[in-house]
């Protein structure tokens, strides 16, 4: 499995310890290219710890991890070049314009000015926001900011984008529009790795894993998980797993 090129994230027996505390207890999973993969779990289950490792920001205690074909122990910088990251908490510079944000992040990733301009034009036209290129971010509605934050996270054409609770606190219509954007990008071949506390959003993932106390307790399609556990909704699946 681990050498199959259809997988873009490959994790085998990943362990991360902080002192005697085991935050990630022998995780094994893989994510396919172009897949929308939901990474769910209770608070404190170890999701953030695992995400940090996958993004090349933290070192595992043991185990094999490959992201976008690169090894987590020796090729962290290559991994960082190949991924995009967006969280609900921090994404755009509020005092900069839309274009300045694109230019800043593009610059960080070492893109040329011409390439940044081309990518910005294309990404903005896809969102239908081309005419707002020179607007200051803090004058825009929250829903637009979310979509712009996503586009900024993929300006350098990463193979994978990590979305950490991208829809937390967003109104119900904007939340759904954001998922349209996720689908659209996944259909263009982008792999999406997403966390959420909204259980209806879990249903939108191609496959998902549910972590409890540092372990992956379930890994399947939403349909497979529900029928396997005899539950009507993902909410029921989650509650059944997390309460045990």
């Amino acid at each position: 499995m681990i050498h199959d090129t259809q997988y873009i994230i490959e994790v085998e027996n990943l362990v991360k310890k902080f002192g005697s505390f085991v935050a990630n207890d022998n995780l094994t999973f893989s994510v396919k290219k172009g897949e929308i993969f939901g990474f769910l779990g209770a608070n404190g289950a170890g999701k953030t710890t695992a995400m940090k490792i996958l993004c090349g920001l933290s070192h595992p205690t043991s185990g094999k991890v490959k992201v976008a074909g690169y090894d987590i122990y020796t090729q962290k910088e290559k991994i960082k070049q190949s991924i995009g990251y967006m969280s609900q908490k921090f994404s755009l510079y509020e005092e900069l314009t839309v274009y300045e944000n694109f230019r800043f992040y593009g610059g960080i990733y070492g893109m040329t000015r011409l390439d940044i301009q081309e990518q910005t034009t294309q990404l903005l036209s896809r969102l239908g926001l081309s005419q707002y290129r020179n607007r200051i971010i803090n004058t825009l509605p929250l829903g637009w900011k979310q979509k712009l934050a996503f586009s900024v996270a993929v300006i350098h054409r990463p193979a994978i984008v990590f979305l950490d609770e991208p829809t937390g606190g967003v109104d119900p219509i904007t939340r759904r529009q954001f998922w349209d954007l996720i689908y659209d990008n996944a259909s263009r071949g982008l792999t999406v790795f997403v966390t959420t506390h909204y259980m209806d959003e879990a249903e939108y993932c191609n496959r998902l894993s549910i972590m409890v106390d540092g372990k992956i307790k379930a890994l399947d399609t939403p349909q497979g998980m529900k029928s396997g556990m005899g539950c009507a909704t993902m909410q029921d699946v989650f509650v059944a797993l997390a309460r045990n």
């Binding site: 779990g41 209770a42 608070n43 606190g169 506390h197 259980m199 909410q235 989650f238 509650v239 997390a242």
Partner: peptide, 13 residues
């Protein structure tokens, strides 16, 4: 004020 924001489904219940 938003006591359950960012809190998992079980803790919310």
């Amino acid at each position: 004020d938003e006591p359950t924001t960012g809190v998992d489904a079980v803790s919310r219940i």
